[in-house]
Write a protein that binds this DNA or RNA. Structure first.
Lengths: 332, 332
DNA sequence: ATCAAATTTGTAAACGTTTACATTATTAAA
DNA sequence: TTTAATAATGTAAACGTTTACAAATTTGAT
C-alpha cells in the first residue's frame, strides 16, 4: 500500500490535519513544521491520493474532452494543446472521441453523470439544440470550441473563420488579380463552414465583385466532395479562374480532378484551401491556404476552463476568437 | 447536488447497504427489493459517484494511455481503438501525450503515483531501461504496445513488423522481379524499425540475393530523412531499382526527391513504404505499402488490459502480434 | 408450532482527504 | 506577571461508496 498523510502524521508527531495543511501550504502552519512535513513526505515519496481529494472537494482534476468525428491531425493537435496546459496545472485529460458506440451528446451526459470530470471542453462544429440543452443544465464548467458565439452563458473559443476567409478572398482579388472566384462550401450546419462562406461573400462585395451563384457549390469537407465540386465547376461554360475550397481536404480533391482534366495548377486554374493540414504541404504544387493554429485553440480553451474551474462565480463569459494567417504556396 | 444512494435508501425504506447491493446486483438481495431500488434509481436519475467507488475499492475505472511523440494519424487511431473498447466496458481513457513538458517516463510515474488510473497502456516503440525499471516496480496492470516481446512479465501487443517487411520484400522480388532493393531504416533504437529491417534482410537471404551495404541507409522515420536517404541512393554509381522505405513518411520523402531528380515513379525507380497512412493515398502514384491496423492494436491492447484489471492473479502473460497486409499501389 | 438453516437486510467501519470548529501554544501589550 | 490577541495545532465530521459482520427475517423440515 502507498504512503498516506496518516503515516506522515505519525512520523512527525502531528495530526493529519496539520499535515494536510502543511502539504497544501495553507494559512497558519509554522514554517518549521511545514518543512518537517515536507521533508518526511519527500523521504517517504508521498503522493497524494487524488481520488480522496476529489471526493471531499466534490470536484475532480480531470478535464473531459468531447470530440466529434474529426481528422486525425486535428484530433491529436487539439489534444496536445489541451494536455500541455492541463498538465502544467496538475490536471488530467480524459478523451471521449465519438465512435460507432457513442455520440457527442452521450459523451457529455456520461461525463456529467458520473462525477468523473471537473470541467469539460467540447469540440462541436455542429452544435445542435440537443447539445445546447444538455450543456445548459449542467453545473460542470464547460468551454465550447467552435460553437456559435451567441451561446452567451458559456465560454467559447473559435477560429476566426470569417477573417480568414475574408483575407484569403481579398488576397486572391487584390494581390493575385483574380475576379472569377468560386467557393466550395462545407457542411450546411457546420459553423466553421458558414463563417468561411460569409467571409468570402463579404470580401467579394467589399471589392465590388458580382456574386455568381453557379460558382458557389455545396461540399462536405471531404476530399470526395471536393472532387465533385471541382468537376461541376470545370464543366461550366464560364469557368472560374480560381477555386477557394472551404477546407484543404476539398482543395486536394480539386487537385485530383484538375489533374485528371489535364489542366495545370496554377496556370489553368488556381486552387486554395483552408486549414493548413500537413497533407497540403505534400501536395504539388504547394497549396496556398489559411493556417489554423489548432494546438493554440486547445491551449486557449484549457486556460479559460481552468480559470473557470477555480472561480465559479464569474458571470462574465468569454468568447475568444483565434485569428488565422495566410500560407502562400504555389497553387494560385 | 446530485442523487446518492442515501436518498434512494430513504425513499425505499432500506439501508444504504442494501441499495448498494441492489444496484450492483450482488449476492443476496430479494428480487422485489432489487426491482424497487432500480426503479427508484431510474426515477431519480441516479448516477453512481465513481470517485467514491474508486476510493473504497482502491482502484479506478480509468485507463491511462501513455504516448510518445507520434504522428497525428497514428495517435488518433490508437486512441479511437482504445476508447471504443474501454467505453463498452465502462472505463474512461486518460491520455498523456508526450510534449515539451513531459517525457514518457514522467507520464508513467505520474499515473502510478497519483491513484488516478487503474490500468495503463504504454505505447513505447523505443522502450529503454528506465521505463522498464519503472514498469517493473508498479502494481498497476499494464500493457505495452510495440515493446520488445522479451519483457516477459508483462502483456505486450505488437505489430508483426518482421512478417510485413518480409512479405513486402518477397513481393518485390518474386512478383515484381526486382533484384536491387534498397532499404531506408528507421531510428536505431526503434523496435518497429529494427524488426522491419530484419524482415527485409531475411527475405533477401531466403531468395539468395546478395546484400549490398551501400543500399542500406539509416533514417529517422521522417519525410526529411527519407529525402536525404533517397538523395544518397540516387547519387550512387550503382543505383537500386526500388527503395523500400521503413515507413510511409520516408517513402513520401523519396517521392519528392525522385521528382526533383526529374525521374519517374515507378518507371525509373520504385518506392514502397510501410504503415499505410492516409497521406500515402494522396500521393501520386499511389504508394505501395504495408497496412498496419492501428485501431485494432489499440482495441486488442485494451481487451487484454481489461481482463488483467479484473483478474490480477494471472501470471500467464500474453504477447500478441497483429499481422499486417500488403497494399498494392502504383509506385513499383 | 418449533428450530435450524438459509436468505435477506442492517450497522458501522473503512477508503484518504479536507475543513469547520475547538483547543492549545505563542506573542505582545499592559 | 497577567491578559488579550493571535498563531498553531488538534478533533472530528464529512464526501459517497463498499463490505465485513451482526441482526433479522424467511424457509423448510420436523
Amino acid at each position: 500500500m502507498s504512503i498516506t498523510i496518516k503515516e506522515i502524521a505519525e512520523k512527525a508527531n502531528l495530526s493529519i490535519a496539520t499535515v494536510s495543511r502543511a502539504l497544501n501550504n495553507l494559512d497558519n502552519v509554522k514554517p518549521a513544521t511545514r518543512d518537517l512535513v515536507l521533508s518526511i513526505a519527500g523521504e517517504l515519496n508521498y503522493k497524494p491520493n487524488v481520488i480522496a481529494r476529489n471526493l471531499v472537494k466534490n470536484t475532480s482534476n480531470i478535464i473531459g474532452v468531447v470530440l466529434p468525428q474529426i481528422d486525425g491531425e486535428f484530433f491529436s493537435e487539439i489534444i496536445h494543446g489541451i494536455d500541455e496546459i492541463a498538465y502544467t496545472g496538475g490536471y488530467h485529460v480524459i478523451v471521449a472521441s465519438s465512435h460507432s458506440q457513442r455520440t457527442v451528446a452521450q459523451s457529455i451526459i456520461n461525463f456529467m453523470g458520473e462525477t468523473i470530470v471537473g470541467g469539460m471542453i467540447i469540440l462541436a462544429p455542429m452544435i445542435n439544440d440537443q447539445i445546447r440543452e444538455i450543456i445548459k443544465g449542467t453545473s460542470v464548467p464547460t468551454v465550447i470550441i467552435n460553437g456559435r458565439t451567441h451561446l452567451d452563458n458559456i465560454d467559447t473559443v473559435s477560429i476566426d473563420n470569417y477573417q480568414g476567409a475574408y483575407s484569403m478572398t481579398e488576397y486572391l482579388i487584390k494581390i493575385k488579380g483574380y475576379k472569377k472566384i468560386a467557393h466550395i462550401k462545407g457542411p450546411i450546419l457546420n459553423t466553421d463552414a458558414s463563417m468561411r462562406y460569409k467571409g468570402y461573400i463579404a470580401a467579394l462585395k467589399d471589392n465590388h465583385i458580382q456574386i455568381d451563384e453557379s460558382w458557389i457549390i455545396n461540399g462536405e469537407f471531404t476530399a470526395e466532395s471536393g472532387e465533385n465540386g471541382c468537376r461541376r465547376l470545370l464543366s461550366l461554360n464560364e469557368k472560374p479562374e480560381v477555386i477557394f475550397a472551404g477546407n484543404d481536404m476539398m482543395a486536394l480533391g480539386c487537385f485530383r480532378v484538375v489533374k485528371a482534366f489535364g489542366m495545370k495548377i496554377p496556370n489553368d486554374i488556381g486552387v486554395v484551401g483552408f486549414d493548413n493540414i500537413m497533407l497540403s504541404e505534400f501536395a504539388s504544387p504547394r497549396l496556398t491556404t489559411v493556417h489554423v493554429p489548432i494546438s493554440e485553440i486547445g491551449k486557449t480553451a484549457t486556460e479559460i476552463l481552468l480559470k473557470r474551474m477555480k472561480t465559479t462565480s464569474d458571470n462574465n463569459f468569454k468568447h475568444l476568437k483565434i485569428s488565422t494567417g495566410l500560407v502562400i504556396g504555389d497553387s494560385c
